[in-house]
């Protein structure tokens, strides 16, 4: 199955904006995706799965969109 990972702000540096990931047997949650991308869990301020704030150990399913933001804000 496939999921889409979208990176924002400084997470894009030397990585990508958007990428499709083939989920292997070892990758089932955002936690493994972060490890694969070399992004520290503590640096993630907002983690969305399909636009909904989610936990890092949430089981993923085919077609999920994972959006990752470092601390950002304003208004």
């Amino acid at each position: 199955m496939k999921v889409e990972v979208r990176l924002f702000a400084t997470f894009r540096n030397e990585r990508f904006k958007k990428k499709s990931f083939e989920i292997s047997s070892g990758i089932t949650t955002p936690k493994e995706i972060l490890a694969d991308l070399g992004i520290k869990e503590s640096s993630v301020a907002i983690l969305l799965v399909n636009g909904i704030h989610s936990k890092i150990n949430m089981p993923l399913k085919d077609g999920d969109i994972i959006s990752l933001f470092p601390p950002v804000g304003g208004g």
Partner: peptide, 15 residues
């Protein structure tokens, strides 16, 4: 994170 990194780097536009 917001006042130390987010706002200085991208301003409010990052929203």
């Amino acid at each position: 994170g917001v006042t130390g990194q987010g706002l200085p780097t991208y301003g409010t536009a990052v929203l």
